[in-house]
Every structure is written in C-alpha cells, then in structure tokens.
Computed example of a mutant assay.
Amino acid sequence: MTTTITICDTCKREGWDETTGKTDGEALADLIETAAAGTAVKTRRFSCLMGCDRACNVTIQAEGKLNYTLGQFTPTPEAAEAIVAYAALHAASTSGQVPYRNWPQAIKGHFTTRHPPLPSDE
C-alpha cells in the first residue's frame, strides 16, 4: 500500500517573507519532494488544507490505514526528512500506526489529527 504525503502549498507561517517569491508551504513542499526522491513514499501538493493557524501542514495517508494531519512545521531540510521518514514507517505498518518510540524526533508535537480509514465497500 502506497503512503502519500500531501503538502499544503499555500501555507504561510506568521511573519512570512513575501519577498522570497514562495509561500512557506511551497518551500516545505520542495524540501519534502527532494527528501522523498527515490523512496516508496509519494508526494503531492494541495492548495489549502485549512490548517492556517498551524502552518505548515501535511497529511500522511494510505488507503485502508489510519491517516494523520501534522502541522506547525518550519520549512527546513530536517523537518522534511523527518516527515518522509515517518511516512516510510507509516507505509511499512499494516494499520498505519507507528509506535511513538519509532517517531523521528522532529515530528513529535506536530500531530494535529488522526483519521480512521474509510470503510471498504463490501
């Protein structure tokens, strides 16, 4: 089952510097896409995850698994690498749940919501 990281590319953190020509979400998306290159984790951009108070936001999703929304990231290589590392652990888990002890340090404190998988049609 493929795990996908959805990155909000319209996120702007408080104090966003508009002179950079990119939103904070675009900057984080660039970093996550680079970190995910060559892995089994997929990425996609989406304009707006509606978590503006906790920008920058991402989701970690896979069909039939628990899905997560994370936010309040600073667009840094360390954050991007931790998000991709967590997504890889999510992909390896049959339920999507990853034991806390295995979480990369840089994602701890960033979880916003957990969503149960949608029921499959029977």
Results as ranks from 00 to 15, higher is better:
residue 114 R to Q: 15
residue 51 G to A: 13
residue 22 K to Q: 12
residue 82 A to E: 00
residue 43 T to I: 06
residue 114 R to K: 13
residue 96 G to N: 02
residue 97 Q to E: 14
residue 39 T to R: 10
residue 50 M to H: 15
residue 62 A to S: 14
residue 34 T to H: 13
residue 40 A to V: 08
residue 22 K to V: 14
residue 103 W to H: 11
residue 25 G to Q: 13
residue 75 P to L: 07
residue 1 M to P: 03
residue 51 G to S: 14
residue 46 F to A: 05
residue 76 T to M: 10
residue 100 Y to F: 14
residue 118 L to G: 12
residue 74 T to D: 15
residue 98 V to I: 02
residue 92 A to V: 11
residue 30 D to V: 13
residue 111 F to L: 10
residue 117 P to G: 04
residue 118 L to R: 14
residue 53 D to N: 15
residue 91 A to Q: 07
residue 3 T to S: 08
residue 34 T to I: 12
residue 68 Y to F: 12
residue 78 E to C: 08
residue 84 V to D: 04
residue 78 E to W: 04
residue 68 Y to N: 00
residue 120 S to P: 10
residue 45 R to S: 09
residue 100 Y to G: 09
residue 36 A to T: 02
residue 13 R to N: 06
residue 51 G to E: 15
residue 61 Q to R: 15
residue 11 C to F: 04
residue 102 N to Y: 06
residue 12 K to A: 07
residue 64 G to Q: 14
residue 29 A to M: 15
residue 75 P to K: 02
residue 61 Q to A: 13
residue 26 E to K: 10
residue 64 G to P: 11
residue 87 A to S: 07
residue 120 S to M: 11
residue 26 E to L: 14
residue 19 T to A: 15
residue 113 T to M: 14
residue 90 H to D: 03
residue 17 D to A: 09
residue 27 A to G: 07
residue 57 N to C: 15
residue 65 K to N: 06
residue 94 T to N: 07
